[in-house]
């Protein structure tokens, strides 16, 4: 009896992610979704710049590596050229919410029929733990060594789902997390819906996944998962921010 196997949509290349990082879980959920929807052969994924830069090595579907922040623009080009294919981007918070915010908002505003998986771990991981646009007030990072302080001109955390929910075009926006079994199952449901929406031609779907970064948060993996509950969710409430399926009911 098979009790556990790797989804086909994942390659055999071992992940390079740090112990306790939740990128691996989210990769798996995306791959399971691709398997279950039977779309691997027509899916084109776009990797960002950031910790998941080498996601192109992990997914078995065709993959494109974009420049920093431009994945939604690249996805737009791919989708316009290949409208019958499934196109997704996988982006972190620096990529999507800082350098690529213009592309994020504009792509959502056009209602491009693509799927975005947005990893929010409140920090720049790959470069070693700098302040992100999503870093929490008071969060100590390499570039906010005294804690993020809006009074020092460091601004407030940017809430992507809430921001995009002000736009007319997005079809589906939901924030989830993967810090326990129940939340993982819920995240899977959301990710699958975001892909299914695209297959059904419904339009722009984005799932924000609150993720952990034990290495740069300076915590054990266990503590990091708890910190999502204690610190991140109060700033970034989980839930559905837009679902035109529900509005139609």
């Amino acid at each position: 009896m098979i009790v556990f196997e790797k989804p086909h949509a994942l390659t055999d290349v071992p992940f390079h992610y740090c112990p306790g990082c939740t990128h691996g879980i989210v990769h798996r959920l995306v791959a399971e979704t691709i398997d279950e929807l039977g779309i691997e052969g027509k899916t084109i994924g776009i990797a960002p710049v950031g910790c998941s830069v080498m996601a192109y090595n992990y997914f078995n579907c065709d993959m494109i590596e974009a420049s920093h922040g431009r994945a939604p623009a690249v996805a737009t080009g791919v989708k316009r050229a290949m409208p019958d294919n499934v196109v997704f981007t996988y982006q972190g918070d620096g990529d999507l919410a800082s350098i690529g915010l213009c592309e994020t908002v504009s792509t959502a505003c056009r209602g491009e029929n693509i799927t975005i998986i947005f990893i929010n771990n409140a920090i720049y991981g790959m470069t070693g733990g700098q302040m992100a646009p999503t870093s929490l007030i008071g969060q100590v990072t390499q570039t906010s060594p005294y804690g993020r302080d809006p009074n020092l001109g460091q601004g407030y955390p940017i809430q992507i789902c809430e921001l995009l929910a002000t736009l007319e075009a997005p079809y589906y926006l939901e924030r989830v997390t993967v810090n326990n079994v129940k939340n993982v199952r819920n995240a899977k449901r959301a990710i699958k819906k975001a892909f299914q929406n695209q297959v059904d031609g419904k339009g722009f779907s984005l799932v924000e996944v609150l993720s952990s970064c034990p290495t740069n948060w300076g915590m054990t993996p266990d503590k990091a998962l708890k910190w999502i509950d204690e610190a991140m969710i109060p700033q970034y409430p989980l839930g559905v921010y837009r679902d035109k399926d529900k509005e139609a009911e």
Partner: peptide, 24 residues
């Protein structure tokens, strides 16, 4: 065909990159 007025020149060239990735 596609005509798309992009949000910036940066986005426009990356949309080109996307189409070019598909060989078109």
């Amino acid at each position: 065909g596609t005509f798309l007025q992009a949000e910036s020149e940066i986005a426009a060239i990356n949309m080109v990159y996307g189409v070019a990735s598909t060989g078109k």
